[in-house]
Design a protein around this nucleic acid. Structure first.
Lengths: 203, 203
DNA sequence: CGGTCTCTTGACGGAGTTCAAAGCTAGTGG
DNA sequence: CCACTAGCTTTGAACTCCGTCAAGAGACCG
């Protein structure tokens, strides 16, 4: 299956941005991961389950979200090709959480369990370093997002999101983007309307 | 100076919650930290500077925040006794950032530079583990906060904050709490008014 | 004591929500 | 390949919560 090899190529390119690995080291590392191909709409995690895997996205993209009493969804993360996703609380503590994770497109993933993650980190010190850098970068990103949500208007947050991740507008449905921003689909639709009117004026 | 010894005692108690250290190991670790006593209102970091230290709070508490074009402050973190604080982006990359950090009470701190942090982690593997757990827990907390800001009303967020950190109401001024929640002081004042009216009804 | 900072309270305006209806798109089965 | 349905997006109108501006009261510090 050549897609399997391709999935690991994406991982190697991504990891290679932070550490340089020999072929042997990388081959050794691959044994810690389980490839998985999922269809659009398929769940990787549901409410009440333990998040067994940290997931690397090679193709497609995933989302993590919660559902409140009213049945409304709230998107916590979106993960595209080359990104990692998991529910941090449940994964690191191995306690059941209240998040869902599902695929918004057909996706190819590489899964690693907490045990494998810990073992990989202690077996290949370069991976220990890579994982810490990953955590640090993730932390930086979440702080940026917090600042954005407490200090900007919905329109400003939307523009900032487009700037930091331009592919989002093309690939993610309006209602999921709205949910990620913490507003209703109606509100985002109106914001888009205003923005395209403004652009028309400037042209 | 017995306060210095006391500052390290707080650190040891805190670190001891996650890893167990011998006296020798802890003594070795202390050499990586610089104690610092600051007065209320004093800055530890200002806009445009590099965040040179990750800071452990032994006494008092600190806040990190940004100031926007209108001059409004936006509180990113509050750190009480036993907590760590830094500006993640600037500290980990050693690039200048746009955050401020200052003391909201007279405080005793233990500072560690990025170099010392890396060296300590590689010298005493237990600290490498401790720091990763610290990052993981911080990540869990920031995700909880993101979910809270995108899915709850200001009143619900305030109640959740009080529950997760009861000391906050007694020690932090209303306007700083409001800023942390992403609302105006006026709005929080009204929320408090409504809540105490509700409580009076229930009594 | 004054002056500054904080908190409260009021009136008004605006951004976003809620509810509802209609058009559009995409996936499904005949 | 078309028809149908279900979900997505847009638009409108009324409402709500919070922001803004302003004024006044209480607390703290020099």
């Amino acid at each position: 299956m050549e897609s399997l090899r391709a999935a690991f190529d994406v991982l190697r390119r991504e990891v290679g941005k932070h550490i340089s690995l020999t072929d042997t080291e990388f081959a050794q590392a691959t044994s810690f991961f389980t490839p998985r191909r999922v269809k659009k709409g398929q769940y990787l995690l549901q409410e009440g389950e333990v998040c067994k895997f940290m997931m690397f996205v090679s193709v497609g993209f995933l989302r993590s979200y919660t559902v409140d009493e009213k049945g409304d969804e709230h998107v916590d993360q979106l993960a595209f090709e080359g990104w990692w996703i998991a529910e941090p609380y449940s994964f690191f503590t191995q306690n059941p959480g209240k998040y869902f994770i599902d695929a918004l497109e057909d996706s190819d993933l590489l899964l690693i369990t907490l045990d494998a993650y810990e073992t990989l980190a202690s077996t290949i010190p370069k991976f220990e370093h890579y994982f810490r850098v990953l955590l640090q970068n993730h932390l930086i990103a979440t702080h940026r997002r917090i600042l954005s949500t407490i200090s900007l208007s919905a329109e400003q947050r939307y523009l900032e999101l487009l700037q930091s991740c331009p592919t989002i507008a093309a690939r993610v449905s309006l209602r999921h983007i709205a949910s990620y921003l913490g507003i209703t689909p109606e509100a985002l639709s109106r914001i888009r309307g205003r923005l395209s009117k403004k652009q028309a004026q400037n042209a």
